[in-house]
């Protein structure tokens, strides 16, 4: 299927969706217009509100807060994940002793921690960073652990035959291998950092995208909720595209990453 046709079909899905929504909320086919609009708003209003917000200044303050929390959670969570992933992969005893605790901690639904983090770190950004951290950390940790464990034994034996010492093996073999695994989960971990931030804001804060949505919800401003969700979706798509760009740069050496049109 060619690209134009695909995009046309994708747009068609959106048009049909918005069409049905419009029909339901602006005609009396499905009951009282006032009632349906109270529950579902209308596509026109949501788009108008979203446009108004995006052209105003206020939303960028909240987006900035959410972005800061996301980036901090991602960076700190990844750093800790890389560190502990390495430590555990290179030390079998450590891994064996902590194995049940790591599994238990990872199985815990992180949302239940949000109130505790709010208690510990206050209602500012750090309680959201902490929540994002607990999500990012485990993803990176498991991937780095796997990356170090699954280094090809032949590549390793070859590097040792080339005379590499432990430090050089780390630099040229273990580290790149672990990073590959980490990068392969970049979308997931960045996504979770954002989830941590938004959920944290939603549950208690005075700024950020999650707060905006929560605020609209508390006054039954359905238009505000939907437009907040739309802005969140746009935000996610932008961040995800940036991650894809970064990924393509970092993983040039991987099969399938290079363009097939090169000579």
């Amino acid at each position: 299927m060619n690209r134009v046709k695909l995009i046309a079909l994708q747009i068609l899905v959106m048009v049909v969706f918005l069409g049905i929504w419009h029909l339901v909320t602006t005609t009396s086919l499905f009951g009282d217009v006032k009632t349906t609009q109270f529950f579902f708003s209308t596509p026109g209003e949501v788009l108008a509100r979203t446009w108004k917000q995006l052209t105003g200044a206020d939303i960028y303050y909240h987006l900035g807060i959410t972005l800061t929390e996301t980036v901090l959670a991602f960076v700190i969570g990844s750093a800790a994940g890389v560190f502990f992933g390495f430590a555990f992969a290179r030390n079998a005893l450590l891994a064996a002793v902590f194995d049940p605790y790591i599994k238990a901690a990872n199985a815990l639904p992180r949302v239940v921690l949000a109130p505790i983090f709010a208690l510990w770190f206050g209602l500012g950004i750090w309680s959201k960073v902490a929540l994002g951290f607990t999500l990012v950390f485990f993803i990176v940790f498991f991937n780095v652990y796997q990356g170090v464990k699954e280094v090809s034994p032949t590549v390793l034996a070859n590097a040792r035959m080339l005379g590499m010492n432990e430090r050089q093996l780390f630099r040229h073999v273990y580290w790149p291998s672990a990073l590959t695994w980490m990068f392969s989960s970049l979308h997931t971990s960045v996504g979770f950092a954002l989830v941590g931030a938004v959920v944290g804001e939603y549950l208690g804060s005075s700024a950020g995208l999650g707060y905006k949505i929560h605020e609209a919800e508390s006054v039954f401003d359905v238009t505000g909720v939907f437009s907040g969700m739309l802005i969140l979706a746009i935000f996610v798509i932008v961040i995800d595209s940036i991650v894809t760009l970064v990924e393509n740069r970092l993983l040039v050496w991987r099969p399938g990453q290079s363009s097939t049109t090169t000579t």
């Binding site: 090809s152 032949t154 080339l162 005379g163 050496w253």
Partner: peptide, 21 residues
């Protein structure tokens, strides 16, 4: 089996062999 470091170019793979020396 293939023993080259897949994350290094041909040049880097050959070059790295001299690093321990």
């Amino acid at each position: 089996q293939d023993a080259l470091m897949p994350w290094k170019t041909a040049l880097a793979n050959v070059k790295v062999a001299l690093e321990p020396m």
